[in-house]
Nucleic acid binder design. Structure first.
Length: 564
RNA sequence: UGUCCUGUGGUGUAAUUGGCAACACGUCUGAUUCUGGAUCAGAAGAGUCUAGGUUCGAGCCCUAGCAGGACAACCA
């Protein structure tokens, strides 16, 4: 093959993020025999949000890119807050996003026995001890940045005694919180995590998987690294807040002499005008500020799905935001760009009038109904065409008419001409108002020779309006969403609670919308473009007799921008 | 006060062993358009936190500062 002479391809090496660089270095040096194994370790205590999507797109993406595998591992070490309903929701989200983990669905709780054995080993080495101090008492021994912790009075208890007590802790002989197992490391470390961290606590609680088998549960640090090691994870990717945990992660692996997984930290995703804290999102749900985890205003994957976001658009987004170690705030406009770009290619165009006003074509035969052909998606010829009924009485958007328009208003106004999309050119002759001065009817005449697509149709007019035939229109409810918060960083104020920035107008429900008859048969979560308005999807509340649409995102609107 | 991490256009991410800062979003022009969408063409916008130093040459190396963030749960 020598066609490089015809089109010399300058194969610029794709620029790698710092994690890809590390992986490639490891591959080149033959570390782990060229094996790449990652994992995504959600805690089943809440719903996944778009920040998690960034993380698991990375985890699964790195594995895919380098011929490796990515495990799904539920980090279920805290039975009090965790639940199988979350497990199911998380599974659904990851699948929806397009990732597969085959049979590699693991649970930290799968390793409780192994972890117990590891703990025994640590005690035997004199590197861990059972401590009888209460939480308050432990806190009282805590030093400061430059003062070491005071040693627990149980720190030097014999190996035999710790072994015995630990076994009895496991057997359920002690009440909750009465004892802990702690690693014996360095009370003077500048890293607080190394000051005899707690490995196990006593919780007589029912676990969603292990039931009542255990009454001692491992802490994050003790469970996570060892779980990675057990699974042979080569690159354990996590967010920045775990940087100070890394020395402990490595200490456990070294003391236990087990497979050396490597923890690598990157900066979590922050999105402007939204919050990403699971705890705070839960608060919004519990306090009724939103309708649930899948409220379309939520940054959860459940919320985004219901809002009409596509997996492809979210994947593209996580790709565009990049991976680095520097704190970042991504403009929500980038997310919106990603959905628009995706939906522009695949969403069928349909006519919907959100704020209808009646338009009457005075010179159109009263009983006549035409079936006008229109293209389903100008960006995709294969989407074909469909027919739409056209008649003497139509609905158009109230905003598309102005009695006294400013310059550059390309829409309908007295004496002015516009085209009705896929139909005729019309001219406004008069308006009818009610007692309050509200316009109730707009009377126009049409030019029969201007039929869309006909030879006579070449005449140009400035504006094109969408419309729906009044006798054929379907009623619909349309829910418009705006950002949930008015502040670009609702969680970034020391003095003010994030809830003070909730946007009271984040949801607008329009009940009197008119949509074209073809929408009779839409299905949940179908994506559509309402011509000239934006991308919409069918809400899960929708039924054939009571259509409900969510606005995913508006079209770019330079007219609105001009008018502030 | 301590330790650790991070500082590149408005935002985010790049810049192969040091070689005169690139891409995307956003913004602004213009063309085109039966969606004020899309598309196409173009522009503005950083001299890389600061100050020194090494070098023919530094965003990349060295030194000293400064700024922001993280950590001090029997949460993960």
């Amino acid at each position: 093959m020598s066609e490089e002479n015809i089109e010399p391809k300058i194969d610029e090496p794709k620029s790698l993020n710092f994690i890809e660089q590390i992986v490639e270095e490891d591959l080149n040096s033959g570390k782990h025999g060229g094996r790449v194994q990652t994992r995504f370790p959600p805690e089943p205590n809440g719903y996944l949000h778009i920040g998690h999507a960034k993380a698991f797109c990375l985890d699964f993406g790195i594995a895919q890119e380098y011929g490796g595998k990515c495990n799904l591992r539920f980090d279920d070490t805290n039975p009090i807050t965790e639940d199988t309903s979350y497990v199911d929701a998380i599974r659904k989200d990851i699948k929806w996003m397009g990732f597969e983990w085959d049979d590699r669905e693991y649970y930290a709780s799968d390793y409780f026995d192994q972890l117990f054995e590891f703990a025994l080993k640590l005690i035997q080495k004199g590197k861990a001890y059972v401590c009888d101090l209460s939480a308050d008492e432990v806190n009282a021994t805590r030093g400061t940045d430059f003062e070491p912790d005071k040693p627990s009075p149980y720190r030097d208890r014999s190996i035999e005694e710790s072994l015995d007590l630990f076994q009895r802790m496991k057997n359920g002989e002690f009440p909750n919180d009465s004892k802990t197992l702690r690693a014996k490391i360095d009370l003077a470390s500048t890293n607080m995590h190394m000051r005899d961290p707690i490995l196990y606590r006593i919780r007589h609680a029912h676990h969603h998987r292990t039931g009542d088998k255990w009454c001692i549960y491992p802490m994050y640090d003790w469970a996570h690294g060892q779980s990675d090691s057990i699974e042979g994870i080569t690159h354990s990717l996590c967010t920045l807040e775990f940087v100070p945990h890394r020395p402990l992660y490595e200490w456990f692996i070294a003391e236990l002499g087990i497979f050396p997984s490597r923890q690598i930290e990157f900066a979590r995703l922050n999105l402007s005008y939204t919050i990403m804290s699971k705890r705070k999102l839960l608060q919004l749900v519990n306090e009724g500020h939103v309708s649930g985890w899948d409220d379309p205003r939520m940054p959860t994957l459940h919320g985004l799905r219901r809002r009409g976001y596509t997996p492809a658009s979210i994947r593209a987004f996580t790709e565009l935001v990049g991976i680095a170690k520097r704190e970042n705030v991504i403009d929500v406009a980038l997310l919106e760009f990603c959905v628009r770009e995706d939906l522009n290619k695949l969403a069928p165009r349909v006519m919907a009038v959100l704020n209808p006003v009646k338009l009457i074509i005075d010179n159109y035969p009263g009983a006549q109904v035409e079936e006008l052909e229109t293209v389903n998606n100008p960006e995709d010829e294969s989407a074909g065409t469909r027919k739409m009924p056209f008649s003497r009485e139509l609905f158009i958007e109230r905003d598309d008419f102005m009695e006294d328009p400013p310059k550059k208003f390309f829409r309908l106004s007295p004496g002015n001409e516009v085209r009705l999309k896929s139909a005729y050119i019309i001219k406004c002759e008069s308006v009818v108002k009610d007692v309050n001065g509200e316009i109730t009817e707009i009377h126009v005449t049409y030019d029969p020779s201007s039929h869309s697509g006909s030879g006579e149709a070449q005449r140009k007019v400035k504006g094109t309006l969408h419309w729906v035939s009044a006798p054929h229109a379907l009623n619909a409810e349309v829910r418009l969403y705006d950002r949930l918060f008015n502040d670009s960083d609702p969680d970034g104020h020391k003095e003010q609670n994030f809830k003070e920035f909730l946007n009271p107008d984040s949801l607008t429900i329009l009940k009197n919308c008119k949509v074209e008859p073809s929408l009779k048969s839409v299905k949940d979560l179908d994506h559509l473009q309402f011509t000239r308005l934006g991308y919409f999807s069918v809400d899960t509340d929708s039924t054939p007799d009571a259509l409900v649409f969510n606005r995913t995102v508006g079209l770019k609107d330079t007219w609105a921008k001009l008018n502030g």
